[in-house]
Design a protein around this nucleic acid. Structure first.
Length: 212
DNA sequence: CTTTACTAGCGTTTCGGGTA
DNA sequence: TACCCGAAACGCTAGTAAAG
């Protein structure tokens, strides 16, 4: 059996980090190609939703979410890469594949591979860690779609709680506005925000500067 | 007219080399 | 030795061009 693992929501200041894995056999690999899975960025949201339903109905899969408050406390002691290596390892462990294909986010492939390996009790026979694996391997594309849709759904849920704050990424004007407004109103950042992120800290400090 | 595809620009983190 | 800054990788948005 072969699994692919990818992550979504590494950069944003709002919402969870999501890691997903999909497990397929040789035949399933062919089905993924027939479905036309590609890197999640290459699909429209509607296509992603449809593919998500097909993938999760047809194959074994796992998803792991790390909420902002948990991420904040973990980052007091570990780097983001170590936290991700932990999450990737437990997803792989849960699917127990012979071969695992992993998308290395913003780190050198070899060091990420060894970080994952040292966290695995039962290691797959083959661990392939590459940049842009989500473009090269359909099973990683599938994982990227699952991760992306799971995060989008979570953001949508948060919109019903907090109103429309955009994507949650610092480059999104709406997100920044929301954080500033919320902080002015409540004198603290919302639970859904990552306090350790520079953007979040800037928002908090800006308030202090205004105050004095 | 609507949807899709592509690029540029900005945000995040980590890594590595140069400099004081 | 310690620090700083650029490069690399990712994701997101907005804008533009092309296709249906």
């Amino acid at each position: 059996m072969i699994c692919g693992v990818d992550e979504a929501g590494r950069g944003p200041v709002i919402g969870p980090l999501v890691v997903a894995g999909v497990l397929v056999d040789e035949e399933g690999l062919g089905r993924l190609v027939e479905m036309g899975v590609r890197d999640s960025k290459r699909h429209t949201p509607v296509q992603r939703e449809r593919l998500y339903r097909e993938i999760t109905a047809a194959f074994r899969w796992r998803v792991l979410k790390i909420e902002p408050d948990e991420l904040d406390s973990l980052m007091a002691r570990s780097s983001l890469n170590e936290i991700e290596a932990d999450a990737f390892a437990s997803v792989i462990e849960g699917l127990a594949p012979e071969t695992a294909y992993v998308d290395a986010a913003d780190i050198s492939c070899s060091s990420f591979a060894s970080q994952i390996l040292e966290r695995l009790e039962r290691r797959p026979q083959r661990l392939v860690v590459e940049h842009r694996a989500d473009e090269r391997y359909p099973v990683v594309s599938a994982a990227s779609i699952v991760a992306k849709v799971e995060r989008d759904r979570e953001i949508k849920r948060l919109h019903t709680v907090y109103g429309d704050f955009g994507s949650g990424y610092p480059s999104d004007e709406k997100t920044l506005h929301f954080l500033e407004h919320y902080f002015r109103e409540h004198r603290q950042l919302p639970v859904c925000a990552r306090k350790r992120w520079k953007t979040a800290q800037r928002v908090s400090n800006q308030r202090l500067e205004d105050f004095y």
